[in-house]
Design a protein around this nucleic acid. Structure first.
Lengths: 232, 232
DNA sequence: ACCAAAACTTGAACACGTTCGAGAAAGGGG
DNA sequence: CCCCTTTCTCGAACGTGTTCAAGTTTTGGT
């Protein structure tokens, strides 16, 4: 009774120069139309027509309409890193670094807030290859976690050694939470999300600091044990 | 540039006895087919045919295929309450009550785990009326929050007064988190979700207890301030 | 009992994502 | 240059969710 109804056709990697060119053309056209009309309003037929190819041709390079989004992920991930780099170079305080990287993440995604909501829906489905937890997304996910590893390692904060190894992944998880909130955030300029970041960052900072305290060590250990056993 | 492409046709409330009967018939048929074949595999045509009505008739009572799910929500919500009642009657310890209610929630949803994942995807979309945060879902949501209010009020735990009013909603939010984990949980019998509940409950209990401490009062207040400002 | 309004029902038609068999173009070994 | 394999391209056709104008049935007032 598996619910998997995901398209079966695998997308082809271009092997010729012409193929490469066509693929790019379709992708660029799709991204433009997504921005102009939104995801749902953009039909595969429109993409094909606008790109001057047959609709079947688009499916030769991209397994489904959703697959067009994966490229988008990779793009914003790169922008996130770019936006985060200055902060990571400048700041050494843990809270400031975390705060900066979180804001940079929202900055990178901000231009797409209008239709980000629409395709986040597909990302939320566990079976979807677009899920941030899926193996297909592992590339972008690892890159994102690496960013948070830099947050930890480049900071002057003293972190419980028990916690240190897993902290980057936990921060990434917190980042996913922020993004989830951001997607639902209807306030102008998504100001509430900014407030969430500013409010949550010092709390996380304090929590991480407390983890080193002698009295709290057992709790820290217990929590880490639980988290590890829950990792899938 | 609103992405809202949700069906416009509003579902009709049955006004006659016959209408009531037809509505029930369609709903029951749909639920049965969802269980038998899963959500995606069940077509609206199949539902109509199996129920012996025209496909347009189904749309007279339910605005869209997704709307059929909303009833499902209400159903499991009732089951959740039923499963939680004995625990709430028996236990007085906060942690035990919370743990019991969370387990009851998973119990109520367990039979539908296979296809719960599929429609959780649509629930995650902010614009969707199926979102647990939407106004359309406010009925089921309020009922669910009420359950957690009972967890707090019936317990012997001393809670910071600042926190007390909002705690039920926060616990409901935690419950949403548990459900999110559960949807992604591929372990046999979703054992990991059970472990998450057992592990997280004492932590929450401890946290709530700590909130009363003199030293932590400012932090508690600060956190509550932030949460209130973020509520949408 | 009658009749107009409201409630309900119908199924063909539409738009969309996706598939597929068949053909065209490119590549590359001889 | 030829020929065969791989790569690419096409667009009609399928299945699906959804709509709608047109009919049928029920209700409630007189």
């Amino acid at each position: 009774m598996s619910e998997a109804s995901v398209p079966t056709t695998a997308a082809a990697e271009p092997a010729t120069a012409k193929g490469e060119q066509t693929r790019r053309l379709i992708l660029d056209t799709a991204m433009r139309l997504f921005r102009e009309r939104g995801y749902t309003q953009t039909t595969m037929r429109a993409i094909a027509k606008e790109a001057g190819v047959a609709v079947g041709n688009a499916y030769y390079y991209f397994g489904s309409k959703e697959h067009l989004i994966q490229e988008f992920y990779a793009g914003t991930q790169v922008e996130h890193r770019a936006a985060a780099t200055p902060v990571l170079r400048r700041e050494s305080d843990f809270a400031a670094r975390l705060r900066g990287v979180l804001h940079a993440g929202i900055d990178a995604n901000a231009p797409y807030h209008a239709f980000a909501a629409t395709f986040f829906k597909t990302a939320a489905e566990p079976t979807s290859p677009l899920s941030p937890f899926s193996t297909e997304s592992s590339g972008a996910r690892e890159a994102s976690i690496a960013l948070f590893r830099e947050v930890v390692e480049g900071s002057t904060a003293k972190v419980d050694p028990e916690l240190r190894a897993d902290l980057p992944e936990l921060l990434w998880l917190a980042y996913m939470g922020v993004v989830l909130y951001w997607v639902h955030d209807r306030s102008p300029e998504q100001a509430k999300t900014r407030r969430l970041i500013d409010g949550a960052t010092p709390l996380i900072d304090r929590l991480v600091g407390l983890s080193r305290l002698r009295v709290l060590r057992p709790v820290t250990r217990e929590v880490m044990q639980l988290i590890r056993s829950l990792r899938q």
